[in-house]
Computed example of a mutant assay.
Amino acid sequence: MRLDFFDLQLFLNIVDTGSLTKGAERSFISLQAASERIKKLEQQYSTQLFTRHASGVKLTLAGQTFAEQSLLLIQQGKKLEQAMSAFAEGQTTQMTLWCNSSAQSEYLPLLLPQYLVENPHIQIDLQEAESSDIIQNIEKGVAKLGLISSFFNHHQLQTLEFSDDPLVLICPPNHQLKETKQLQLADILSYPFVGLMQYHSLQQSIENQAKLLNCAIQYRLRLPNFAAIAQVVASGVGVAVMPKRAAQRLNQLYHFHQIELVGEWAKRELLLAAQNFDQLPTAYQHFAQFLISQKAKLILD
């Protein structure tokens, strides 16, 4: 069965004018051609759509149903044309992805180039924030899609597993903790720290955990990224907490020890979160499906 939108519009023109002749004129075809097209429609659906009278035509019950569905299809067809014309004209679709520090620096740079190359009319704005703030923004409708840590309460949202994202402690090669296999946060708060700048969401999260222990972190230096921190820690300045993925990457450049951190706050998992994935705009749904499809690339050694 093939639908011809011209036939649907012809049918609606006849319905609107109440006349086969006037409907044909509005459709810019001859009366004979219009009559033949309507006849083929009736044959296709094995039912009569009109009753003919001297004063014009009237819809049958089947015709009324056909008119209602034809109108919906015409409307959907126009929406389809509008949606596709944006791609033909090279219009840009902009999306905002909210993410924590780890996702922004260690995961998304690995995945986003492929997506942006495959979708040249997409622009992605990354908004870094602490996971708790991202969750609140999604709940309020300020944000549509976010990558959050599983440590925070996200039960009002729909989530999909994205990647494991544990935290580790890194320390200088000759540090007294270098032989330690596992540590809790309380075990390291007495040591001088090298940390991220105050505005980084990961550092805010670590400081919040320290406050729960009634402790304050002693910073010898704050730096803007993990690479700078790794270099300074390797030089013997202090210890630092960072995502395991970042530590593995940077350990190839700088010599330091990695120590596993114990506790739910450190055994993080990154989740892709939204209020309702099925109700996201099409562009966001497509992007979310891509991110989840790349999970195999993100498995930690």
Results as ranks from 00 to 15, higher is better:
Ser85Met: 04
Val117Ser: 12
Val233His: 05
Arg245Gly: 01
Ala273Leu: 02
Leu250Gln: 11
Glu25Gly: 01
Tyr254Met: 05
Ala247Cys: 08
Gly146Phe: 04
Leu253Pro: 00
Arg222Ala: 15
Leu270Glu: 00
Gln252Lys: 04
Asn251Asp: 12
Ile148Ala: 12
Leu116Gly: 09
Glu81Val: 13
Lys39Tyr: 07
Arg37Met: 00
Ala246Ile: 02
Thr96Gln: 14
Leu189Pro: 04
Glu130Arg: 14
Ala283Gly: 03
His257Lys: 15
Ala143Glu: 03
Gly238Phe: 11
Ser101Leu: 02
Val15Leu: 05
Asn174Pro: 03
Asp278Arg: 00
Gly141Pro: 14
Ser46Gly: 11
Ile217Asp: 12
Leu110Asn: 02
Ser27Lys: 03
Leu71Trp: 10
Thr60His: 12
Asn251His: 14
His121Lys: 08
Gly238Cys: 10
Glu269Lys: 03
Ile259Thr: 12
Leu272Gln: 00
Trp98Gln: 03
Gln82Thr: 11
Leu126Ser: 05
Leu116Ala: 05
Lys22Gln: 05
Lys295Ile: 00
Pro173Glu: 02
Ile217Thr: 12
Leu221Met: 14
Leu183Met: 11
Leu167Tyr: 14
Phe87Asn: 08
Trp265Ala: 04
Gln209Trp: 09
Cys171Thr: 05
Arg220Thr: 11
Leu31Ser: 02
Lys267Ala: 01
Leu61Ile: 14
Ser201Pro: 02
Gln204Phe: 07
Phe66Ala: 14
Gln44Ser: 14
Phe277Ile: 11
Lys295Pro: 03
Ser102Met: 04
Leu97Gly: 11
Gln69Met: 14
Asp4Glu: 11
Gln203Phe: 03
Cys215Val: 07
Phe87Gly: 04
Leu112Arg: 00
Gln275Trp: 07
Gln252Pro: 03
Ser132Val: 01
Ser235Phe: 08
Asp133Pro: 01
Phe226Ile: 00
Trp98Gly: 06
Tyr45Pro: 00
Val57Gln: 14
Leu253His: 09
Gln69Pro: 08
Arg245Leu: 15
Thr21Gln: 06
Tyr45Thr: 09
Leu271Ile: 12
Leu71Met: 11
Leu108Val: 05
Phe162Asp: 01
Glu161Trp: 04
Phe162Pro: 00
Glu118Pro: 06
Ser19Glu: 08
Lys244Glu: 00
Gln9Arg: 10
Glu269Asn: 05
Ala230Thr: 07
His155Pro: 03
Gln176Cys: 06
Ser70Arg: 10
Thr21Lys: 13
Ala283Pro: 00
Leu3Lys: 12
Leu97Ile: 03
Phe66Arg: 13
Glu42Leu: 09
Asn174Gln: 13
Arg220Val: 13
Gly263Ser: 13
Leu298Trp: 07
